[in-house]
Design a protein around this nucleic acid. Sequence first.
DNA 1: CCGAATCCAGATTGATACTG
DNA 2: CAGTATCAATCTGGATTCGG
Lengths: 138, 138
Amino acid sequence: MGPKSNLPQPDIVGRALERIGKKPLLDETCIVHRAFALLADKWTLLVLLALMHGRKRYSALQRQIGGVSPKMLTQTLRALEEHGLVEREVFPEVPPRVEYALTDFGRTLSEPLASLCEWAVEHEGRLRAVLASERSRG
Amino acid sequence: MGPKSNLPQPDIVGRALERIGKKPLLDETCIVHRAFALLADKWTLLVLLALMHGRKRYSALQRQIGGVSPKMLTQTLRALEEHGLVEREVFPEVPPRVEYALTDFGRTLSEPLASLCEWAVEHEGRLRAVLASERSRG
DNA sequence: CCGAATCCAGATTGATACTG
DNA sequence: CAGTATCAATCTGGATTCGG
C-alpha cells in the first residue's frame, strides 16, 4: 500500500519486521502479536476467506466451510463482528434470514489472505505429502 | 501453478480464489482449508515469524514470544518440524544447546507472513481500538 | 424452517515444578 | 539449558432445544 519502494534489500520480511518497530520481537504488546491472536483461530481465516467472495447467508457459510458446527460458526462470526471485520444483517422475514459481509476494514485483509491462499495452492504437492505422512503416524 | 495471467480484473482475492480451483469453497479436501489448519494456531504464526529473523535457540524463542509456555513452545516447534517448516539441531554440549531454523520450505511462507505483519502495522490504530473495547466489555 | 443458545463430554491449553 | 510431568482451567464440538 505504501509507496515506499526504493529500499535496497529485497528482503520482504526484513522490511516488514523493520516496520513493526524496534521491539525485541513479538512481546504481548506488539501489534503483530495482538493481530495474530485475533486471526490465528481454527475458523476465523476460513470465514473471512469465504466472505471475500461477497455477502453470504449463515447457512451458505455453514455449507461452504466444511466441518464447522453451527455453534463455532456463530461464535466465530460474533467475534469477527465485534472486531469490526464483519457486518451482520438480520432480515425480519419468515423464514428468518441473516446475512454476513465483510466491512471495509475486513476487506483490508484481502491481500494477506490472498497471499496465504496462493502459498497453499503453490505448495499443494508438498503440503499434501506432509499431511499424508502425518496421518499415517497418528 | 498454471501460468494463467491474462485475467482482466485486478481483484487479487478473486484471482487467488480462482487459482484454488472450482470447488464450492473451502471444503475439507481443499488445500487452503488444510493449509490454514496447519498455520491457524495460537503460536504457530508467531514462532514462524520469530524464526524469519534467523536461526534461534529455544530459550531465545521463549523470551521473544511473550506469554508462551515451554510446553506449548515445544509442542508448536515439534509440529512445525514434522510439517517440514522448521529444522531442529541439537549440539552435544554442556550445557545443552538446541537451535531452530526455518527450512527452505518454511521460508516460502515469508511473503504471506510479511503481508500479515504489514496489515497489522498498517491498521495498528484501529486494531488497538478494537482490542481496547473488547477488554472493557469482558 | 433458519439461526442461534444451552448443556455436557472430551480435547486442548497453560502454569508450575521437576529432570537429564 | 532444554525440555517433560502433572494437574487445573479453558476451549471445542455435537446433540438438543429454543425462538421468530
